[in-house]
Design a protein around this nucleic acid. Structure first.
Length: 430
RNA sequence: UCCCCGAUAGCUCAAUCGGCAGAGCGGGUGGCUGUUAACCACUAGGUUGUAGGUUCGAGUCCUACUCGGGGAGCCA
C-alpha cells in the first residue's frame, strides 16, 4: 500500500492508497460518513460507506473527534463536486490517537483566543498557507543571494551593546555581566563583507520597544545583504531584483496558498521592474499634493507611509532622507551633507516599509564624529571603527523584514500571523 | 509610554429604562445513503474578569485593579 500525501493524489487516480493525517471535519448522512482528512499537504474528503468498511471502522467514522490522528486506506476517485477534484472512497479507517475536545471550532473565534492556541491554530488552512508562503519567500531570498555568490554569514544573537543606540534592547544575564539580544546583524555583516566581499545575514532580530501595532513584533527575522565596493544605486537595483524574485516565487509556488488567503494576485503581478525611485524631498511634495500636512525633516509616520505607498501601484524606493532621522552609520550625500545615502522600500497597498538600508559611512573620521554626535559609547564600537582603519572601502547593504514582506504578499492585516510563534509585547505564550 | 474599546456557558455573542441570564457553534443522545462551516429533534452546560461602592434590587451605574483587542509613537 502506497502512502501518499493529499497534494499528490491526482497521480493515483483509481488506485488504492494510504493517507495519514488528522480529522479536519466530519459530516454524515444516513449510512454514509464524510471525513475530511488533513495531512499538512492539503485536505481531502474521505467517503465512508457502511457496506464498504468494517462495522468498527464505520462506528469510528461516526464519532471520531476532530483532530484525532488516523490512517485511511481507499481508492482515489475523480470527483467534480470536490474543490480538490478528487476524494477517497475509503475501505479502511484506523485510529492512531483519539483527540480530546478540540478548542478551535468551525465558527468564529477572537484573536486573543486563537493566539492563546497558536500551537493549534497553525493547523487551520489559512495559517497553514501563511507558513508555507513564508517558507517559499525566505527560501527564494536566500537562494537569490546564494546564486549571486553571496556568502551566508550568521551574526551573533548575543551582543555586548546596542548597534544603533536608539531602540531599547532585551537585556540578558551573561555570566557575571549583561548581554543584549541583537537588534540588527548589520554591523557584523559589514565586518563579514570586508572579509568575504558580498555576504548575506539571515537571522532573528529583537526589539524591546513597547510597540503595539500590526507591523511590530518583538522578535522578527531579517535578510541583510552587505556588499563591499558597492554604492547606493546598485544596492537599490539588487533590492529590486530580490523583491521581484520573491514575488515570482510566491506566485509560482504558492498559487493554492494565495487562493486560500483570498489574495488578489493582480496587484502582485504588477511588481515587475522598474520600481519607481523617488527622493525624500519628492515624497514630501507628493504628501503635500495629497493634502497631508508635513514638515521637511520629519520622519514618515504610518499615515504618511500609507499615503505614499498608495500613490504607486508597485513598491516604491524612497532615497536621500535627512541624515538627522537616520542611523549614525549612514554615509552622507557628498553634494549635500544634510542628506543620507539611505533607501527604504515601501510596499504598495498601504503596507509601508519592508526594506531599509543604504550606503555606509566609510571614513574613520566621519564615523567617529557621528558616534560622538549620537552620544554613543565609543569603546564597544572600536571593532567597527577598525573596519575603517584597515582598508576601508565604499560599501552598502539593506535589511528585508521577512514578516512585513510576507504580510504584504499574503495581503493580510497583521504581521503576527506570518510567523509560527509570534512574540509580541504582551505575548510570550505558547 | 499615550489614546480608544472590551471582559457574560468550552468558543462567538445577545440580554431594551437598573427588574426571572439567553442563542448559535462545540459536547452528549437519536435521525437521515452525497454532505460541503451539512441538516433535523432532544439534552447537559453559569461565582457575568477581580476588589470595593451606590441601590429594595447590579451583567447593566460609579471607583480601582488585572487581562485582552484596536491604534499611535519608534522601527523592519
Amino acid at each position: 500500500m502506497t502512502w501518499v500525501t493529499v497534494d499528490k493524489v491526482a497521480q493515483y487516480e483509481d488506485q488504492n492508497v494510504e493517507l495519514r493525517g488528522w480529522i479536519a471535519n466530519r459530516r454524515s448522512s444516513g449510512k454514509i460518513r464524510f471525513l475530511h482528512l488533513r495531512d499538512g499537504h492539503g485536505v481531502i474528503q474521505c467517503v465512508v460507506m457502511a457496506n464498504q468498511v468494517s462495522p468498527e471502522a464505520f462506528e469510528l467514522s461516526d464519532r471520531v473527534p476532530y483532530e484525532s490522528s488516523v490512517i485511511v486506506r481507499g481508492t482515489v476517485k475523480k470527483e467534480p463536486r470536490s474543490p480538490l477534484g478528487y476524494e477517497i472512497s475509503a475501505n479502511e479507517v484506523r485510529l492512531i490517537a483519539e483527540a480530546a475536545d478540540y478548542p478551535i471550532s468551525k465558527k468564529d473565534h477572537g484573536v486573543g483566543f486563537l493566539m492563546d492556541n497558536r500551537h493549534l491554530w497553525i493547523r487551520s488552512s489559512k495559517q497553514n498557507a501563511l507558513l508555507k508562503l513564508r517558507s517559499v519567500v525566505t527560501n527564494a531570498a536566500r537562494s537569490f543571494f546564494d546564486e549571486l555568490g553571496f556568502v551566508s554569514v550568521e551574526a551573533p544573537v548575543l551582543t555586548p551593546t546596542a548597534c544603533e543606540g536608539t531602540t531599547s534592547l532585551f537585556e540578558v544575564a551573561y555570566f557575571d555581566r549583561s548581554a543584549y539580544l541583537t537588534q540588527s546583524g548589520q554591523l557584523y555583516g559589514e565586518a563579514a563583507a570586508m572579509a568575504l566581499g558580498q555576504i548575506c545575514v539571515y537571522g532573528p532580530t529583537f526589539r524591546a520597544e513597547k510597540s503595539k501595532t500590526r507591523r511590530h513584533l518583538t522578535e522578527f527575522w531579517m535578510i541583510e545583504p552587505e556588499m563591499a565596493f558597492w554604492e547606493l544605486p546598485e544596492t537599490i537595483d539588487l533590492a529590486e531584483k530580490m523583491i521581484c524574485r520573491i514575488v515570482e516565487a510566491a506566485l509560482e509556488k504558492c498559487s493554492t496558498q494565495l487562493k486560500t488567503l483570498e489574495r488578489d494576485t493582480a496587484s502582485l503581478e504588477k511588481a515587475v521592474p522598474p520600481f519607481p525611485r523617488i527622493t525624500y524631498s519628492r515624497a514630501v511634495e507628493i504628501l503635500k499634493e495629497k493634502g497631508v500636512e508635513f514638515n521637511w525633516g520629519d520622519d514618515f509616520g504610518a499615515d504618511e507611509e500609507a499615503v505614499l505607498s498608495q500613490s504607486f501601484d508597485k513598491p516604491v524606493f524612497v532615497t536621500h532622507y535627512p541624515a538627522d532621522i537616520k542611523a549614525f552609520y549612514m554615509k552622507r550625500e557628498p553634494q549635500n551633507p544634510k542628506l543620507a545615502l539611505a533607501v527604504d522600500l515601501l510596499a504598495p497597498e498601504g503596507y509601508g516599509e519592508i526594506i531599509g538600508g543604504g550606503q555606509r559611512e566609510d571614513s574613520l573620521e566621519m564615523l567617529e564624529h557621528r558616534i560622538a554626535e549620537h552620544g554613543l559609547p565609543r569603546e564597544p564600537l572600536e571593532w567597527y571603527l577598525d573596519l575603517r582603519r584597515y582598508g576601508s572601502v565604499p560599501h552598502a547593504g539593506f535589511g528585508l523584514g521577512i514578516e512585513r514582506a510576507v504580510t504584504w504578499i499574503a495581503g493580510i492585516h497583521h504581521v503576527r500571523e506570518t510567523i509560527a510563534f509570534p512574540r509580541l509585547m504582551d505575548r510570550l505564550y505558547p
